[in-house]
């Protein structure tokens, strides 16, 4: 009983390493990925597995809208899996970070440890919920729902181990950024044309009790 996921990890050496590239030059901020994710994964009201943060900056006429599609980064060295007291947060051999609903007790420790704030308490189940790259679709040979729904093909999903894949080609030939690499998590979602202003936090954030 030491590791409940041992049997699922055995003897699969040639597995891919899934990752995503988000080309923000193509993103228009239509929020379709958000909706597709909600429909595919049956995400209740009030929580999002994937969302698009949208900011405006500058003064007219020099203005721009910047977008940051946010989802679980499926880190190579995930903090959530380290801090989980019951091994409910675990990583598949192909890199997808999962939540085991049979083990998760809803202690929320992983939520406070995640630097990307992508983990949420499912209001109906009382346990942690997060993006899992639509693992059931990926296992069936399909693309994740947000990738398939994106009208401008801004999201590209693929195998990072394969040098011929679209994601590897983009990472190799375009300037890419990752969210908070200084956290030591080695995230596997890459952004092209990323505006760091979308990462800035607000001083004097709204406190929950004042709403």
């Amino acid at each position: 009983m030491s590791n409940p996921h041992e049997d699922k990890k055995e003897g699969k050496k040639d597995l891919p390493r899934w990752g995503m590239v988000i080309d923000l030059d193509r993103c228009v901020g239509c929020h379709t990925c958000e909706i597709a994710c909600k429909i595919e994964n049956d995400v209740p009201l009030g929580i999002w597995r994937s969302w698009v943060k949208e900011i405006e900056k500058g003064r007219y006429p020099n203005v721009v809208r910047a977008f940051r599609p946010t989802l679980c980064n499926h880190c190579e060295d995930p903090i959530c899996c380290k801090v989980c007291p019951v091994k409910a947060a675990w990583q598949r051999e192909d890199g997808i970070v999962m939540v085991d609903p049979h083990l998760c007790v809803g202690c929320r420790y992983c939520m406070s440890a995640c630097p990307y704030e992508v983990r949420y308490i499912h209001p109906l189940k009382g346990m942690i919920d997060k993006c899992d790259f639509c693992h059931n679709r990926v296992d069936a040979g399909l693309q994740p729902s947000c990738v398939e729904a994106c009208p401008n093909s801004a999201r590209i999903f693929g195998n990072l181990k394969d040098p011929e894949s679209e994601v590897s080609r983009l990472i190799a030939t375009r300037p890419v950024a990752r969210l908070k690499p200084e956290m030591g998590t080695d995230p596997r979602v890459y952004y092209i044309g990323f505006d760091p202003a979308t990462l800035e936090i607000k001083r004097e954030a709204e406190l929950i009790w004042e709403k």
Binding site: H31, E54, I55, E56, R108, M111, Y120, A197, I208
Partner: peptide, 15 residues
């Protein structure tokens, strides 16, 4: 720098 147009409010973790 920028003004936030849309963002998701994160949940309080430890209360």
């Amino acid at each position: 720098m920028g003004k936030v147009v849309f963002d998701v409010h994160y949940q309080t973790t430890l209360a």
